[in-house]
Design a protein around this nucleic acid. Structure first.
Lengths: 232, 232
DNA sequence: GCCACGTGAATTGTTCAACAATCTCCGTGT
DNA sequence: ACACGGAGATTGTTGAACAATTCACGTGGC
């Protein structure tokens, strides 16, 4: 049966390509569409339409919805359907609440970091700087997210990594919900560099407190921008 | 249509009782069965059998499995089925990794706590003490979990509360997987009280560091017990 | 004009029956 | 002892069905 196995594997790779992974697959497809900015916040996701578009049954699509709902990327309203999440002010507050504990904790108690980790942070910062100088807002936002992910990675917890990724995915939704102002991300490039410098100098406690102040300021700036957007 | 509505609501409450909630309902039923200790770790959850037992279709049961899998209460092995999770040593390490950041962070940065929060902690500690004196292991474990939940609640984040609940649910699975030693929980009653005292004295930083040491010790003690159990 | 009120269509929640893919178990031959 | 095949059981996925609920819209009363 080995030959048939190989055949089946190839068929799986080329064509439709899945048994026991369809739900994950669909969830992934939707996740990137949403992160990319197609399917903006508030969009209603019709089961029939999406199911036929992706070539999966309504049941399977539903499973994917379950996954995305658990990640807060999508909102399920009973008997009304699922929508691309549109984070509220309270959602933003919760995002920063999470970050304001998670990131400082990872800085404060993450231990002395390996040279590799420090090098990776430096690379991310360099990427952010060149994106800023090139005026590439998307790349700047990406690099910023990568920096904060790297900070949390110091904790070495898969769970925290996942939580941070979810929270940052929600941040993307916030940005997609409003006009993406180029001047918004720029100041944070050097703020990140400052944190990295403190960390490299083994001043973890100061890095942690600096991060808390940083996040406090970022939150109020973002909330102000959102309010401005709402009253426009 | 108000009368028909009321009728429908009553019918819903009395009989089968759900449209748009069945998945949650089933997940909840399974969750308590597992937490209670029926369905011990490693148990295979047959779709056909469980579905008919709970009076739901295989599809709906599957949705419930998805919810529980996201909570790490249940393990999904593709094409093999779902099993009540049997936490490995690495899982235990991850649990304590999470707790070792989350709880100290909540202590350190949770701010001055309200009298209500302090009073609730004291009540929990009193409950733990009387359970210990009465030799009621289950009640002691419950009170201990409540204390640590109260600590994390200082952060005021629904997300952290949920994460802590999940992690503690996994801890229950660990305890169900081994013989529940009465002498195991007892020492932690006073350790909790010490943390609470530091907090009440506004010595948050010491409370945080104390908690880290506490959790370090608890982890190695638990890992040793698990290893002992494995080699039995 | 405008608001309460059905009424019918559209959509979701759930079930059921089927089938393909995969795993498990068990005998067989070597 | 051990690889090799099947037969049966279980999971993964689909499609169609139906009940429950919401939504859109036209009607009538004020």
């Amino acid at each position: 049966m080995t030959f048939d196995d190989a055949l089946a594997a190839m068929r799986r790779l080329s064509s439709g390509a899945r048994h026991a992974h369809t739900g994950q697959w669909v969830a992934g497809a939707l996740r990137t569409r949403i992160a990319e900015g197609d399917l903006p916040p508030g969009t209603k996701l019709l089961e029939e339409a999406l199911g036929s578009a992706l070539g999966v049954s309504r049941n399977t699509l539903r499973e994917a919805f379950g996954i995305l709902a658990a990640e807060n990327i999508v909102t399920r309203v009973p008997n009304r359907g699922v929508f691309v999440a549109r984070p509220t002010a309270e959602d933003i507050a919760e995002i920063y609440r999470v970050r304001r504990y998670l990131e400082p904790a990872a800085l404060r108690w993450g231990g002395a970091d390996s040279g590799a980790a420090a090098a990776e942070r430096d690379a991310v910062i360099a990427r952010a700087r060149s994106a800023r100088d090139a005026g590439d807002v998307a790349a700047m936002a990406d690099a910023n997210q990568d920096f904060h992910k790297a900070v949390v990675a110091r904790a070495g917890s898969a769970r925290f990594d996942a939580m941070m990724s979810e929270v940052l995915a929600e941040m993307r939704l916030v940005f997609h919900g409003m006009g993406d102002d180029p001047a918004f991300h720029a100041p944070y490039v050097e703020a990140n560099a400052d944190i990295a410098a403190l960390l490299r100098a083994d001043r973890a406690d100061e890095a942690a407190e600096g991060m808390r102040a940083y996040l406090d300021q970022a939150e109020s700036q973002l909330l102000a921008a959102v309010r401005r957007e709402r009253d426009r």
